Amino acid sequence: MSFIYMIIMGLIVGVIARAIKPGADAMGWILTIVLGIIGALVGGFLAGMLGMNANGGFTGLIFSVIGAIIVLFVYELATGKRRIG
């Protein structure tokens, strides 16, 4: 059951991060789920470095979205996509 929960939360976090970050990110549902899962890992790492507990709840969601936005910026740098505007 935790695997299904991870996929659903990855999708939610990925969609929120893509909605917040400006620019067109052409990626499908699977990449959005992967983005959300990796973003949650990055967000958990950031929360740990700040000495905060981000295990679930609203704080965990916020740190996961922040981590996913960071991953989106790194993804753009790695793929060479340029922002217009």
Rank of each mutant, 00 (worst) to 15 (best):
V13R: 07
S2I: 03
A26Y: 06
G60Q: 01
G28Q: 00
R18I: 03
I20S: 08
L35Q: 02
I12Y: 10
M52A: 11
S2L: 04
W29E: 03
I66F: 14
F73K: 13
L11H: 01
A40H: 14
I37W: 11
K21P: 06
I4F: 09
I66H: 14
N53F: 09
L72F: 11
A26F: 06
Y75E: 01
K21S: 07
P22G: 00
P22D: 01
M27S: 01
V65E: 15
I7D: 03
G57D: 14
S2A: 04
I20L: 07
A17C: 03
R82M: 02
A54F: 08
L46F: 12
V13I: 08
I20Y: 06
G57Q: 11
M49N: 11
I69N: 03
A78E: 03
I12L: 12
G28C: 02
G85C: 00
I7E: 00
S2N: 01
I37C: 13
L77G: 12
R82N: 00
L61W: 12
M27A: 02
I33T: 14
V65F: 13
I69E: 02
M52G: 02
E76S: 12
S64K: 03
G39K: 08
F3S: 09
F3Q: 08
K81Q: 15
I8F: 08
D25V: 00
M1K: 11
V13H: 07
I37R: 13
V74L: 14
I20F: 05
T32E: 01
G67Y: 13
V42Y: 06
G67S: 08
I12Q: 09
M27H: 03
G43N: 07
N53V: 02
L31F: 01
D25P: 02
M52E: 00
L41K: 10
I16S: 05
G60A: 03
I7L: 05
I4S: 09
L31P: 03
G39L: 02
K21G: 04
I7A: 06
M49G: 11
I84E: 02
G14R: 05
E76M: 10
A24M: 15
G48F: 04
I16M: 08
R82A: 05
G67C: 15
A19P: 10
I33R: 11
G43C: 13
I84K: 07
A19M: 12
T59C: 03
L77E: 02
I20T: 04
L72S: 14
E76A: 14
G10N: 05
V13G: 06
G23M: 08
A68P: 15
V71H: 10
F3E: 04
T32M: 00
Y75V: 07
L41C: 13
